[in-house]
Amino acid sequence: MRNRRYETVFILPADLGEGRQQELLDRLDGVVDKGGGIRIKREDWGVRKLAYPVKKQPKGHYYLLDFVGNAQIVSELERQMRMLENVLRFLTVKTEDRVDLEAAKKEQAEERDKAAAKEAAAREAAAKEAAAREAAEQKKAAEEAAEEEAAASTPEPEAVPEEDAAPEEAVQEEQKTEG
């Protein structure tokens, strides 16, 4: 059967749990894979306000699935989406009538690399942030311990520890802005 390029936009409820959402996405991906299609990319448009309520929902999470496949995949995909109650709306549009399978595979690989790079960058940023937060906490803890120690060893009037505390706070703030 002839392969064409399609894009399917579908809307999931905004309040659906992340696990349920992933389950649905995997299931729809599976339909394309099983039919021998090539999934080029999936766009996540995020949660948007609907122009009018659908199934009493004021907001929806939009997704776009870009794939190459035959008509059977499309009908199976639409059948599944009709059955699933959590799909508020869907629309499949043919974007290309003639596709070069090799080019499609190449594009798929490119998109995958792009997505992986993006994910890696996000993960790195998150790790960096976590490390910075941890370092700040450790420093804070150390300072607190030092303060306590100082307070214990020199039970003097409050003027001395207060002077100590001021520069320490400044250091902490500097670190925060860096992170």
Partner: peptide
């Protein structure tokens, strides 16, 4: 009409 179906625009 497509945008309306996807609730991107009002009917």
């Amino acid at each position: 009409k497509r945008a309306r179906h996807l609730a991107l625009m009002p009917y």
